[in-house]
């Protein structure tokens, strides 16, 4: 059990090293800023469909809903956000699509 966990850790470390070497032009390993959920960080409880100022950053040019892997929103808030965005779309507060 313990050995298994250890080997997993080693494997992970090895992979990260390979990733850093993969970017052979750069010396520093690729540093990605840790994403945090905007709603958790700012303590926004109410994700409201009327609040277009809050929602608009989550609908980029094509007006598609920004995925969690990009925005870093947590699962709970992404779910609430999706409902709010869909309601706002119904009322033409935000677009369904954009050319």
């Amino acid at each position: 059990m313990n050995g298994g966990r250890k080997s997993f850790g080693a494997k992970k470390g090895g992979r990260a090293g390979a990733g850093a070497q993969g970017k052979d032009g750069q010396r520093r390993p690729m540093f990605r800023r840790r994403k945090v959920c905007k709603f958790c960080a700012d303590k926004i409880d109410d994700i409201n469909y009327k609040d277009t100022k809050l929602l608009l950053p989550f609908v980029p040019e094509r007006a598609k809903i920004l995925p969690r892997r990009i925005s870093g929103t947590c699962a709970l808030h992404q779910r609430k956000l999706r409902v709010a965005l869909m309601r706002a779309r119904q009322l033409a507060l935000i677009p369904y699509t954009a050319e």
């Binding site: 303590k43 926004i44 009327k50 277009t52 608009l56 677009p95 954009a98």
Partner: peptide, 20 residues
């Protein structure tokens, strides 16, 4: 405090030409 700068959350009426 995040509440301070978010007082204008709901004044939707003032926000014109928000097409994007």
């Amino acid at each position: 405090d995040p509440d301070d700068d978010r007082d204008d959350r709901f004044d939707i009426g003032n926000e014109r030409g928000m097409d994007r």
